[in-house]
Write a protein that binds this DNA or RNA. Structure first.
Length: 872
DNA sequence: CAGGTATCCTAC
DNA sequence: TAAGGTAGGATACCTG
């Protein structure tokens, strides 16, 4: 039976079929637009690499003998000339060498790399399919239905497709094996796949949580929630450990989720499942599969390598056909930036009103006792901890973002989710390189130490307040520079030739060929991305105007993904290992950037305007307004309100004038914000502004207020201080600060406001314990490591990379004495803090700021309020 | 106790 | 091995 539907590729893999002739089937695990899961078995692509003669270009005819030798090799199936391709040494004839199986590529590469330049030899076979067929994640697929399970659409089910034995036979005929745990299995060929417009896929997500014994590591109970396009079902598991694990595994295979989530699953639940599988199943792979066979492949002995979640070293987990997506990691890498990252803290932050979401009832450090005494409550707590990760992913729009990034970078959702920046860039660059006859070098492996390239320019900043300041910045500075100067490995002039048409960098004179001679791959892609972002933004506005929320959401995700991707180009090309990298490329981009911004600074200053600050692509300029104009917005009735309005109007005009004057083709300087006051204590990357346009707000950068390793009292005191300073009430700011410091000294402050929190690394040993010494030179010399160790000792969870909260209880000793902050997690009294330490920290951080007005740290700390200020 | 090193976190 | 970049501020600890 033929089937055609739009679907989204979750992830892919390949299966070697050792028949006669041998072939390779690509498995694409997809979710259809209407919500069915499909395994697509794609036939017709053969693995290959591309070679050229080493050394200077020679005519193709001179390579005949070498090619004959290649043709005689076992693994080589076919050799085809693919004509001339661009290389670093000029245009050269290239040949495509097809082999039997993907795993033979690496061996062949090693065997021939002395005689040939081997290219396109390190590309995953699934990625090869997307590249060669020019597909993204959203496809229209047509093929023969081989299996249609109970959840498949009725029309797809007939006598053949719903009969397991018949289906298994037909799957074997096309190179698969057994019955995949998806709703449908469909076979097709390359030409049955086509790119479609992006849509929002109704993915199925499985969230789970284990409660385990602290004494024996045994799993006591588990819970899981399935989210199927917004509809949720809850499941709980108790009893024998093996039954719990089999229950979870059956549920995974039955519900067939695309995404597997939970809180801290990467470092806790998944490794714990693996460890317990080892304990219970020993060496029997099939017993193990019943416990933990979560891979989206048939439950067969022959699939035993792909049935299990795996990870290399301490990297991301892989579950064939599915995407592990740890809600904790999503929080950690989101813009949320919570001070602490425990599930309860994050839930409170996201849903402060919703008591049910964060009421604390189980002491996780006493799990064995809790489980013995009140198992029902433990199970309820366990269920809650599976629901919250789903809510968190929803709030952070994690899945929608991955899908949009997959669409823009034309990769699978898995690559967008777990892949690296260079894989996203590869997907676009290699695709275009293949179509432009540019050879694709392999990634440089091995350690690559090289001198750092110079980065952006940061302007010195004076201590104090500057009234009425405009902020301008370059729109997409690095991408714009790359486009304007045609910067690309394929246009880089690699000899010392010169030509008037070249784009030459300002100081090291790195040269790139002109667009007329050859358009670089990178500028071409960036230009397309810029246009596509504009298109998505226009579509977003149109959808909003039309009241189409779903479409607006999709377009917003897409434009954001384009932005992320565009900004990733510079980093990848400036890295030391990327396949197309050259040190001069990264260095010349920043060179142009420094030159452009310094040039503007010089011109603005020669016009007599003070440049207050500048960082990389931004410039802060004092606006020429009446010196008497107030900084504070007066009430509308007040006399001075007119002056304030006048100053604002003049500032806006000044900003617009500067933007217009310095905007060039390919270097757009945008007027971003107007400040009625700018303050810094004189350190780069640390400033505060009172924004009056486009909205009224306070802008803080760099200061402790922005830092997740600050403590709440410092953050709130400093914020208040900035508000006062920007209102011209410096004296009051100092008095307020002194009062706070006095309170700390008198122990009148709540310890919860003094929790310091820092990320702590570590490597997980296979038995679940954490090794700190691999990462830190002197782990016990770091307060947060000591706090983490104490957490572990007390039976509380610690996972590498997690933020650890602690209180300093004695800073007079060296090293200082700290205690972990456990009040969020267990019912105990807060530690007694060291008042002198916190008073000193406050005085130091706040004193740096008040120093700008003549009050030193020592004066803040002295405690006596200096009424004598009035004497001046 | 000054100065150097290791480490974290942020701005862009 | 696998891998986006540099600039910059700040803190704790250790050494001499």
């Amino acid at each position: 039976m033929q089937w055609e539907e739009e679907m989204c590729i979750v992830s892919g893999n390949n299966r070697a079929v050792d028949g006669k002739p041998p072939k390779t089937v690509v498995e694409l695990w997809c979710r259809t637009r209407s919500g069915h899961s499909v395994t697509l078995l794609v036939d017709g692509l053969r693995p290959y690499l591309v070679v050229a003669e080493s050394g200077s270009p020679r005519p193709a005819s001179e390579s005949a003998a070498g090619l004959d030798y290649l043709r005689g090799m076992d693994e080589v199936v076919e050799i085809t000339s693919v004509g001339d391709k661009w290389t670093r040494l000029g245009e050269k004839p290239h040949w495509k060498i097809e082999v039997r199986q993907p795993y033979e590529i690496r061996r062949l590469r090693k065997r021939i790399q002395d005689a040939w330049v081997v290219t396109s030899a390190d590309i995953l076979f699934v990625q090869r399919l997307l590249l060669d067929c020019d597909l993204g994640p959203h496809i229209l697929a047509r093929g023969e239905v081989l299996w249609a399970g109970e959840r498949a659409p009725l029309e797809a089910r007939d006598e053949q497709t719903s009969d397991r034995a018949i289906a298994a036979g037909r799957i074997a005929d096309v190179g698969g094996v057994g019955i995949y745990p998806t709703d449908m299995v469909v076979s097709c060929t390359l030409d049955n796949l086509a790119k479609t417009e992006p849509f929002r896929t109704p993915f199925v997500t499985f969230s789970f949580d284990l409660e385990t014994s602290i004494q024996s590591n045994r799993i006591l109970c588990a819970a899981a929630v399935i989210d199927r396009g917004g509809e949720r079902s809850e499941h709980t598991f108790r009893g024998e450990e093996g039954d719990i694990m089999e229950g979870l595994t059956s549920l995974v295979r039955l519900e067939d989720p695309d995404i597997i989530t939970g809180y801290n699953i990467d470092n806790f639940d998944l490794p714990r499942m693996e460890e317990r599988t080892d304990v219970l199943a020993g060496r029997s792979k099939m017993e193990a599969a019943a416990l933990y066979g979560w891979g989206r492949v048939p439950m067969l002995q022959s699939e035993n390598k792909r049935l299990f979640p795996t990870r290399q070293q301490n990297r991301v987990w892989r579950i064939p056909g599915r995407i592990p997506l740890d809600a904790w990691w999503q929080v950690h890498t989101s813009t949320l930036r919570p001070q602490r990252e425990t599930l309860s803290y994050v839930s409170k932050l996201l849903w402060p009103e919703d008591e049910d979401k964060h009421k604390l009832d189980i002491d996780a450090s006493q799990m064995d006792r809790e489980w013995a005494e009140r198992p029902d409550e433990v199970l309820e707590y366990c269920v809650r901890d599976t629901v919250l990760p789903l809510d968190i992913l929803g709030r952070l729009q994690s899945v929608a973002r991955k899908e949009a990034l997959a669409s823009v970078s034309m990769t699978t959702v898995e690559t967008a989710s777990a892949g690296t920046t260079s894989q996203w860039i590869d997907s676009l660059v290699i695709r275009l390189a293949d179509r432009s006859n540019v050879a694709v070098p392999t990634t440089n492996s091995g350690p690559r130490r090289r001198d750092q390239i110079a980065g952006g320019y940061v302007h010195e900043v004076d201590a104090g307040i500057s009234p009425w300041v405009v902020v301008l910045d370059f729109k997409s500075m690095y991408p714009s520079i790359m486009i304007a100067n045609n910067i690309c490995p394929t246009t880089l002039v690699r000899d010392d030739s010169t030509d008037d048409s070249y784009n030459v960098s300002p100081t090291t004179h790195t040269s790139y060929r002109s667009k007329d001679e050859r358009i670089g791959l990178v500028p071409h892609l960036l230009e397309q991305l810029m246009q596509s972002r504009d298109k998505h933004k226009a579509a977003l506005t149109a959808a909003r105007d039309a009241g189409d929320e779903a479409e607006a959401f999709l377009q917003d995700q897409m434009q954001y993904a384009v932005k992320i991707l565009m900004n990733s180009f510079y980093g990848v090309f400036a890295s030391s290992f990327y396949r197309f990298t050259h040190p001069d490329i990264g260095a010349s981009i920043t060179e142009w950037a420094r030159h452009n911004i310094r040039d503007i600074i010089a011109q603005v200053e020669s016009d007599g305007h003070k440049v207050v600050y500048s960082d990389t692509d931004s410039i802060f300029v004092r606006a020429p307004v009446n010196k008497q104009a107030p900084i504070n917005r007066p009430d509308e009735g007040e006399e001075s309100f007119v002056d304030w309005e006048e100053a604002k109007r003049e500032t806006l005009q000044f900003g617009e004038r500067l933007a217009e004057r310095f905007t060039r083709e390919g270097a757009e300087l945008e007027f971003e914000t107007a400040l009625s006051a700018f303050f810094s204590h004189g350190a780069k990357k640390r400033y505060v502004g009172r924004v009056v346009w486009p909205r009224e707000e306070m802008l803080i950068r760099g200061y402790e207020v922005r830092r997740t390793d600050s403590f709440a009292l410092l953050t709130s005191t400093m914020t208040e201080m900035f508000e006062m300073i920007l209102s011209g009430e410096e004296w009051a700011a100092v008095e307020m600060t002194k009062a706070v410091i006095d309170d700390v000294k008198g122990r009148k402050v709540d310890a919860a406001d003094l929790v310091i929190s820092r990320s702590c690394k570590g490597t997980l040993r296979r038995n679940g314990t954490v090794d700190f010494s691999k990462i830190y030179d002197n782990p016990d010399g770091l307060p947060y490591v000591r706090a983490a160790k104490e957490r572990i000792r007390r039976g509380l969870p610690f996972t590498p990379g997690m933020k650890v909260g602690y209180i300093v209880i004695n800073a007079k000793s060296s090293p200082m004495t700290v205690e972990p902050w456990l009040v969020d997690e267990i019912d105990e009294d807060p530690p007694k803090y060291d008042p002198d330490y916190y008073a000193r920290r406050l005085a130091k951080s706040l004193g740096r700021i008040t120093e700008a007005f003549g009050w030193s740290e020592a004066e803040l700390l002295s405690g006596s309020r200096q009424q004598s200020i009035f004497d001046f």
